[in-house]
Simulated assay, not measured.
Amino acid sequence: MKFTYKGIVFAKDYNKSFAEFEKDFGSNHIFNEIPHLERAKELKKVHNDLIKHNGKFLDSSDKGEKHKAEPSKE
Rank of each mutant, 00 (worst) to 15 (best):
K2A: 08
K6R: 15
K6I: 07
K6Q: 11
G7N: 10
G7K: 13
I8K: 02
V9E: 13
V9A: 08
V9D: 07
K12W: 03
Y14T: 03
Y14R: 02
N15F: 02
K16H: 06
F18R: 00
F18C: 02
E20W: 04
F21Y: 12
E22G: 03
D24P: 02
D24F: 05
D24E: 15
D24G: 03
F25E: 04
F25Q: 07
S27D: 14
N28P: 08
H29Q: 08
N32F: 09
N32T: 10
N32S: 09
N32G: 05
E33N: 09
E33C: 05
I34V: 15
P35A: 12
P35G: 07
P35I: 14
P35C: 07
A40G: 03
K41Y: 14
E42R: 11
L43V: 09
N48A: 11
L50C: 01
L50D: 01
L50Q: 00
K52V: 12
N54S: 04
N54T: 06
G55D: 05
K56Y: 12
L58Y: 01
S60M: 01
S60F: 01
D62R: 01
K63A: 15
K63C: 13
K63E: 14
E65R: 15
H67G: 04
S72H: 14
K73W: 14
E74A: 11
